[in-house]
């Protein structure tokens, strides 16, 4: 490749890796929410992608309502969109999942229904158009070979920060201890004073909130529209199947692998090839290690 016309392989790989890292970071955050909900509640939340979509659409709505600096609108969206999504998820948990006694099969069907309700609700309230959301700031990080969006680097750092926060919450706080105890044995957890129903509501809301945070962070590089939840849902499932349902460590690791490889393969080869490879990986994991790389059985 002629360096004077096109980039050399090294810089090109760096660019692809940066794109992959953005995708991996957002995917990790989204998938951790899904994994947490499954791990603690044993609920396969098929509506998880719609919470992502709702976060993005609400980010557009909130930032659009507030005139002035895009930074102000973005910060408001980053605070309020996840809170609204968490609130809706908590209501959905109380009205739907709790009434089904969190039965694993019934909740799959119920969350499919929830998916359509949220999706059609967003269509009705916000319309079918794709909506742009302005990035809160606009600067480019200059590398010797190319310039790169400073906002995208911010997205990577913000996701890493939130993931570290989730890790600290789970491993360093009483709330985290309660969540982990509930995850390992819900009956014994109850016998030791843990209000499992309340923990479930909190975890479902928290999982949805993480998806919404990921959406608010990434939506300035995309556009918000009512069908955008499908891709994050499928990728999140791929990631949690590979990492092991309920394993946060596995989820983050798998998100890094899938996100980075997807970014790199997409730039060097073809987006379809990236999807084919991740599908083959999922199939192999399902055949040879059905619990995923770090998944464990629970009571």
């Amino acid at each position: 490749m002629d360096g004077s016309i096109c980039m050399d392989f090294g810089p090109y790989l760096l660019l692809a890796s940066l794109e992959g890292a953005v995708q991996a970071a957002v995917l990790a955050l989204t998938a951790v929410g899904l994994s947490l909900v499954f791990g603690v509640m044993r609920v396969v939340n098929v509506a998880h992608g719609e919470f992502f979509m709702l976060g993005a659409v609400l980010a557009w709505w909130i930032s659009n309502m507030l005139t002035g600096s895009p930074l102000f609108g973005f910060l408001a969206a980053l605070i309020f969109a996840p809170l609204i999504v968490a609130g809706l998820a908590a209501v959905a948990d109380r009205l739907i999942l709790k009434r089904l006694s969190y039965d694993p099969e019934a909740t799959i069907v119920a969350t499919i229904g929830l998916l359509y309700i949220i999706q059609q609700g967003a269509l009705t309230l916000f319309g079918p158009d794709a909506r742009p959301v302005a990035a809160p700031f606009d600067f480019r990080v200059s590398f010797p070979w190319f310039g790169y969006s400073g906002y995208k680097i911010f997205v990577i750092l913000a996701c890493v920060l939130v993931l570290l926060g989730v890790w600290a919450l789970l491993t360093r706080t009483r709330i985290g201890l309660i969540m982990r105890a509930t995850q390992f044995d819900r009956e014994t957890a109850q016998a030791f004073g843990i209000p499992v129903a309340r923990v479930y509501t909190g975890v479902f809301a928290f999982g949805a909130m993480l998806a919404a945070v990921a959406a608010v962070l990434i939506v300035p590089t995309q556009q918000a529209y009512y069908l955008m939840g499908l891709d994050p849902l499928l990728l999140s499932f791929i990631v949690v199947i590979i990492g092991g349902l309920g394993s946060l460590k596995g989820t983050v690791l798998a998100a890094a692998v899938i996100g980075l490889s997807d970014g790199i393969i997409t730039i060097f080869f073809d987006p379809t090839l990236a999807k084919i490879l991740s599908t083959i990986l999922v199939a192999m994991i399902l055949v040879f290690r059905p619990t995923g790389l770090f998944g464990t059985a629970t009571r």
């Binding site: 201890l177 390992f184 014994t188 109850q190 016998a191 004073g193 009571r299």
Partner: peptide, 27 residues
């Protein structure tokens, strides 16, 4: 609800121990 039992003085050692096996002794 079941989770109220300890507050009213009931303690429980379940059959098969039912420890939170991935948590530490301290936890």
């Amino acid at each position: 609800p079941a989770h109220a039992a300890p507050k009213y003085g009931l303690g429980y050692v379940p059959q098969g121990r039912r420890l939170f096996s991935e948590l530490t002794v301290a936890e």
